[in-house]
Structure formats: C-alpha cells, structure tokens
Design a protein around this nucleic acid. Structure first.
Lengths: 217, 217
DNA sequence: TTAAATTTTTAGTCTTACCTAAAAATATTT
DNA sequence: AAATATTTTTAGGTAAGACTAAAAATTTAA
C-alpha cells in the first residue's frame, strides 16, 4: 500500500525530473513538498525499499517503472477531479487545486475510471495539463511559450505553466482563458515585454507572464 | 482542525447514541471504530479538550453541540457522495460504502454544497438514510420495520437498517430495492418468518431480514 | 454487602512522518 | 589541489494514533 505522504513524494519526483526519469536532488524535493532535506532522505529510502524509486546515496533519486505508474495515476486522479470541479461543480480554475490535492488520494480504481467516463474522457485539465490514461501515458504537449514566438504569429492558448492562484487570477482579471486565440504583435527589447492581441483586446504582457503562456500553433 | 481519525470517532459516537446526545461506552466505540478501549480513552480526551465531547472518567461520552454538528457534516458528506456514486458513476448500493468513507473526509465547504446542488438536493442516500442539511438537521425517518407491520398492510421500502454488503447483496439477489411496494401477507409464529409480496413476486423472509427492512406507509 | 467479573483508565511502547543539529560527502572557489 | 561552501545523510527527538499489560473503578452476583 502506498500512503498519502508517499504519493506526494512520488508526484514531486515525477514532476521535477521529466516524469521521474531524471535523477532529482533531495533539496529540490524538499522544496516541492515543503519539508526538510532530512525528511526527504527518510522517505526516499522507504520508496526505494518498496521498489518505487532508484536511489544511491548522494546521487539523487529517479522513479522505477512501478513508481512512475503510481505517480501518473495520482496525477490522473488529480486532473480528472479538477475537470469535475470546474465542469460540474462551478469551481473556477483558480479554486480547484487545494481540493484536488485531497481527492487525488482516494483509492478506488472503479471510481477513477467511472469518473473518467462520466466526464467523457477529457484529455486535458482546466489548466491545459494533459491527463494520463489508465497506463500512465499522456499525449505530449505540443505547445510553445508565447515568449518564444515571433511577432506576427498566432496560436491558441492551450496551457499555462504556472497554475498558482495568483497567476490564474491575473489571467481572469485580464480576460485571458484557455482556448483564446492570441497573436503576438510586438516584442520590446528594453524590458522583454510583448504586445499581444486577442479577439477582444490588445494588451502588453511582461516576460514573466509570456513565459507561462503556451500556444498550440 | 479536526483530523480524519477524530472525525471517525465523532461519527461513531453520533451513531451509537441518538445523534451523540446519549452517553456511550468506551467499549462500544472501540468496537465501532475497530480499535481498543485504551485507544478510545486517549481519543475521547482529545475530543473533550477540543470541546467536541462531554466526558467524565468512567461515565461514557456524549457530543457537545459543536461535536454533533461536526459529526453531522461528515455524515452529510458521506451520504451525498454515496448518492453521487450511485446516481452518476454507476456504483451499486453495496459498493459505495468504502469509497464514501474516504470521500467524507475531504475538506471544502464549497465542494459539499456544490455537490448537493449538482445532485439536486437529495434528502436520502441510496440506503434510505436521511442526509443532514448544512446545519446538521435531518428529517426524522418516518418508517417502520416490516417485522412490526400486521399482515394485510403494505408500504414502500424506504430504508434498510443494515447496510453491510452481505445484506445488500441478499436484497439484490432477491430483487428487493428501495422504492418497491411491499405487502405483508402472513406471519409465521413458529420461526417468526413473514410472507411478503412485491409487484413481481411472493417470498418468505426471516425475522432477521424483516427487522432490517423499513416501510413508509 | 462482600467477592468476583467486567469495564475503563493509566503507563509504557511502537510506527509514521516529520523535525534540528551535527557529521559526511560532494561541489565550487581561489 | 587545498580550502571553503553547499548538499546530503545520520543521529536523535517529537507528536499523533495506535497497541499491550497492569491498575483502578464500576457493575454484577453470591
């Protein structure tokens, strides 16, 4: 049995190192799960004992196939619940994270798969993140940061990298949502800001914002 | 903050003693939550410290108003989730308990209330148990055990007292479901069995079964 | 109304998941 | 390549929530 806490560590390792394939550092994990390096070392040993992680002292951790699948299933649940909250229960995309963090730990294969069917097999969550399938696979994101797009080109906003509520609220305030068509009009070298245009408006966004908006083109 | 474990004890006390108003014994609680009496004593002290329970050594426990409300809210969540699982996710009534036991601990007022609305404010769960409202109140059950109904009378099956999966599977096998109209045809004093009739069949049920079936008349 | 049985509490342990502080290993500078 | 800085691990400790075994209180029976 994988405990709640173990699931959170698996998720962290998965996210930090390209689906857990890369070796990630103890400190990075500690930061991600808001704990201390020493606690991480303890937990990593436990994961390695359970054959969920590959670990050699001082060399960082990666996930085993088993660990990667376990992590992907937690992420699958998290994202499916987010879709449920937004599509069925009137949550907005900046309110779902905390609740999904709890729901993702509920254990029942039937629950996940019925939920998936009930939501009509969504492929992406409300922030544009792909939803892993039963086998832990997801369609790779084929999108590119607005910051890397040349002036004159456009695309559809399909993913936001930062999904903290501060950023999502900024987007709400500025009427930017997934699915919007966005055109890059101009790049300002002085402060790296960009002028963009949507169906309803023309606006200037900072480099920080641009780097978190991804378009599919 | 009320922990998961505390919530389970609150539920147990609530269920054992008429919504927690009656004083219940340490042993009874231990039995209900599958732990030992000594563990119960520890937890009861914690609940009393948090002003959720009334406790004097050797005299049993009851719930304070605050404790009763907290318990009712957990039960509200449990039953709403059961409705969700059965009505939306194709679970049958004998499969929902275990999953609802996990879902009931998810913390988010918005979640409960939106779920309630999404399900169109159900008043009873799939076993006929009443769903407490936001303030912890529920409509009293106005139903009577089949065992206490005189031959010749009938009613609608609206509540099953025992909701273990063994009993629910027995009902499934014998095509008895909530909402069915059931008429009591005969009572057999030798073994206390009853002959009942539904729209589709005539059958004999034991005293044990009869005492767990409640009709509204 | 004592004696016996039962229930409840206390005392002392264990495990999980965290922590701090110090030691060990690895990385980075000079 | 030594010295210094950083990262990681180890050692030892804490709180929550469980446990066993023994002591205390209450209840039941003789």
């Amino acid at each position: 049995m994988v405990t709640l806490s173990e699931e959170n560590y698996l998720k962290a390792i998965y996210h930090l190192g390209k689906q857990g394939t890369l070796s990630v550092s103890t400190n990075a994990i500690a930061e991600k799960v808001s704990s201390k390096a020493s606690s991480v070392t303890d937990m990593i040993k436990k994961l390695a004992d359970k054959n969920l992680a590959n670990y050699t002292r001082y060399q960082g951790v990666s996930l085993t196939n088993e660990g990667r699948l376990a992590a992907a299933l937690v992420i699958r649940k998290h994202r499916l619940w987010e879709v449920f909250l937004v599509n069925k229960l009137n949550f907005s995309w900046d309110e779902v994270h905390e609740v999904a963090e709890q729901l993702e730990h509920v254990k029942s294969l039937k629950l996940v798969n019925e939920l998936d069917a009930f939501l009509e097999f969504p492929t992406h969550d409300p922030h544009g993140d792909p939803i892993p399938d039963k086998n832990g696979n997801h369609s790779p994101i084929k999108s590119i940061s607005i910051f890397d797009i040349d002036a004159g080109n456009q695309g559809i906003l399909s993913f936001v990298k930062d999904s903290t509520d501060v950023f999502l609220k900024y987007l709400n305030k500025n009427k930017l949502a997934l699915g919007d068509t966005i055109k890059v009009l101009d790049f300002e070298p002085f402060d790296n800001s960009l002028t963009i245009e949507t169906k309803s408006q023309k606006m200037i966004i900072s480099k920080e914002v641009a780097q978190n908006l991804y378009l599919s083109i």
